[in-house]
Design a protein around this nucleic acid. Structure first.
Lengths: 215, 215
DNA sequence: TATCCATGTAAAAACCTTTCACATGAGTTG
DNA sequence: CAACTCATGTGAAAGGTTTTTACATGGATA
């Protein structure tokens, strides 16, 4: 796992130069966050995992935050992909596919806590990391697009504003994920699964918009 | 602001002993979080603000996390008080008062970012800080109780489960607060106020439960 | 007044971040 | 193919943090 000597312990390092340090650092950061929480990541330890000196990372990232931001960007990309796959272009039915997005949201939070933490718990400055802003926007666009198509299933007169829909659903999914899904001691107990809670919430919400018949 | 010498610069410190260090440290921690974000707080700097040596805080708190946890506990208490005041025992009308709770939630996130960060962004271990668990429960209980009374406004047969209601509203409020309200660079832009977004969401949600007539 | 012990200090070990001058060697160039 | 360059890594150092330990102080109590 932690090839140190010049003999290379398994992957990458061949001699004085690592060969793929940037990627190795991102992997290491992710592993550290996964293992010890968002605060458990340090540049020094990531360097140690990659088998380089503590100064080496600074050849690839301005500072610790920049490395974290890169992790978050990749997280958003994976997130967008997962949501997109769940949406599956609205098949078989828009409303059903919309619910699948919600499930995918929670699944991501559960299965990729390290990415999720980097994305939402790091308080990274979107301003100073434009990539991050863009990546986040791409992920939200999936939800936005889905909401649009779901809204379009009803006649134009009764059609709800899709942006508002997307924001409501995103907020509820994010709230549930943040409060009840994430591992660790901060999590609260729930008398049902988070998925069921979200599904019920989404259904009720869509009902009130006339997008799904009363159950 | 930072009385250092033994002459006391304004409040508290009288000589070798501070006199009120515990409170001073909590205040300092809150100020630091407010000024520089959740990560901007350090025991050393809190001690500096209080005019004591870096080791002094350890007479009052086991470690940095314990100090942060105490801040969070006080945050939850203030939070519960604000929500309770907004609810005002369901007056003038339960549904209206319920919406007021939502507004109060966002107002708290906006006006008390330091407390909010300590409460929700610190990933404190509820396990190791039972006080924190209790304080959080007290705050949620306000919402829980309100949901119960709102649910009770309809006949028993059509009465929705109030716990589910409370969880849905809490999640949406928390999601909106986390994604759109909190200051700082991580925040996203919104084409409407967060308060309006939440109010609309709550209304739609209550509508689908038959707790409020279609607008 | 004498004593005690809660509360503070100084010092130290062990981390971390970040910078700087210097080393290395992979890839380019003549 | 040899020489060179520059991206990439190292070592050392400055400065900051956490937390522990032995010791100091003085307010409260007997």
């Amino acid at each position: 796992m932690s090839w140190t000597g010049p003999g290379d312990g398994g992957s990458g390092r061949r001699g004085y130069h690592h060969g793929n340090l940037r990627e190795a650092l991102i992997d290491a950061a992710l592993a550290l966050i996964a293992a010890k929480g968002p605060a458990g990541f340090t540049v020094a330890e990531a360097a140690r995992l990659a088998g380089v000196s503590p100064a080496a990372p600074y050849r690839h990232f301005r500072d610790a935050e920049a490395l974290l931001a890169e992790v978050a960007v990749r997280g958003y990309d994976l997130f967008a992909e997962r949501l997109s796959k769940a949406w599956n272009n609205g098949r078989p039915q828009p409303v059903r596919a919309f619910e699948d997005i919600g499930r995918a949201y929670l699944t991501f939070a559960r299965d990729q806590p390290a990415y999720y933490a980097a994305m939402f718990d790091s308080h990274l400055a979107m301003d100073t990391h434009p990539d991050l802003q863009a990546a986040g926007d791409r992920a939200f666009a999936v939800l936005r697009e889905a909401a649009e198509q779901v809204a379009a299933t009803v006649s134009k007169g009764r059609r709800p504003p899709s942006l508002m829909m997307a924001l409501h659903i995103w907020s509820m999914a994010h709230g549930i994920a943040s409060l009840f899904v994430r591992e660790g001691p901060g999590r609260r107990k729930l008398p049902m699964t988070a998925e069921d809670l979200l599904e019920a919430g989404v259904l009720l919400y869509l009902q009130s918009l006339g997008l799904v018949g009363a159950q």
